[in-house]
């Protein structure tokens, strides 16, 4: 029994770590620009697909391929901000959501054209020999996912709270005009926020693809789960989003193992709804007064 629980825990944390990275991406863009970016899952897909093709297509060493893939995705994220989001200045919140949905469809279409419909695999970073803990097993790649997520979350936290640049991004989210008045280059800060989100997405993609495979439409479900995680934790709080991701992953794997694998996603969403009914701004979100 405890072996089982331990195994569910490993699975939950690995899946949850992916959700957490996607959720963090959602939260950063939301905090910087009030936009819910439904193309976040496509950043994950783009990172993973680029990596697979740079590695197997051009024969680059794996680390180089991964770095290049992540860099390409960052450029993509920034161009998305520059050429789509920034152009739609006057658009309402819902209109911007539709723009991001359009972008996600567009990116999926591009990936389909460039790389086809096949499901693709990527080698594990450091072998596939399972690590035994009692009867529970863990792959080295699981450790990569957990560790990578941990490092990135801490780095993002440090960036926003202890660097001038990070604080400037936060300032823009609090009050764009005021930030502009004190001499912050708002446009640049937005670029940084989108670049950072794309970076997190791409990292999630390359870390997890050895375990999960990837395909041109792999981003849809990840985007959806990431959004759910961000809401669960509280959209306005990046660290809340991370916690939400881990929690959602754990709930799903426990539900699959202990209750019903067919209904595990439904159970995840039921928990999410209950949390929202009790805490309308998510677990760690601040309740904000409506501006009249």
């Amino acid at each position: 029994m405890w072996d089982q629980i331990l195994q569910f825990l490993f699975t939950g944390v690995t899946v949850g770590a992916t959700y957490a990275l996607v959720a963090l991406g959602f939260a950063i863009i939301y905090n910087a620009s009030d936009v819910v970016n439904f193309a976040q899952g496509e950043f994950v897909m783009m990172g993973a697909m680029c990596a697979v093709f740079l590695y197997s297509g051009s024969g680059l060493p794996l680390p180089v391929a991964l770095l290049l893939a992540v860099a390409l995705t960052i450029v993509l994220g920034m161009s998305f901000q520059r050429f789509a989001i920034a152009r739609a200045r006057g658009a309402s919140v819902v209109s911007t959501i539709i723009i991001t949905i359009g972008a996600s469809i567009f990116l999926r279409g591009v990936a389909l054209l460039l790389w086809g419909k096949d499901i693709l695999a990527m080698p594990h970073f450091s072998g596939e020999t399972p690590i035994q803990l009692g009867r529970a097993t863990l792959l080295p790649q699981n450790l990569w996912v957990m560790g990578g997520t941990g490092v990135m979350v801490l780095a993002v936290h440090y960036f926003f709270h202890h660097t001038t640049l990070g604080k400037a991004v936060i300032a823009c989210s609090c009050n764009r005009t005021a930030a502009h008045l004190v001499g912050i280059n708002v446009g640049l800060m937005m670029l940084i926020a989108y670049g950072l989100s794309a970076f997190l997405g791409a990292m999630a993609g390359v870390l997890v693809t050895p375990i999960t495979f990837t395909s041109y439409d792999a981003g849809v479900m990840l985007g959806l789960k990431g959004f759910s995680a961000a809401i669960l934790g509280g959209m306005g709080n990046p660290m809340g989003a991370v916690a939400g991701g881990l929690l959602l992953g754990l709930i799903e794997s426990m539900a699959a193992g202990l209750i019903s694998s067919g209904y595990k996603d439904a159970i995840g969403f039921v928990v999410l709804l209950l949390v929202l009914f009790l805490r309308p701004s998510g677990l760690f979100g601040k309740a904000s007064a409506e501006r009249v």
Binding site: Q4, Q7, F8, F10, T11, G12, T14, V15, T18, V208, I211, T212, F213, S253, M254, A256, G257, S261
Partner: peptide, 8 residues
Amino acid sequence: TDMTAQLT
């Protein structure tokens, strides 16, 4: 992306 729980 992971069926470990069911297989366990």
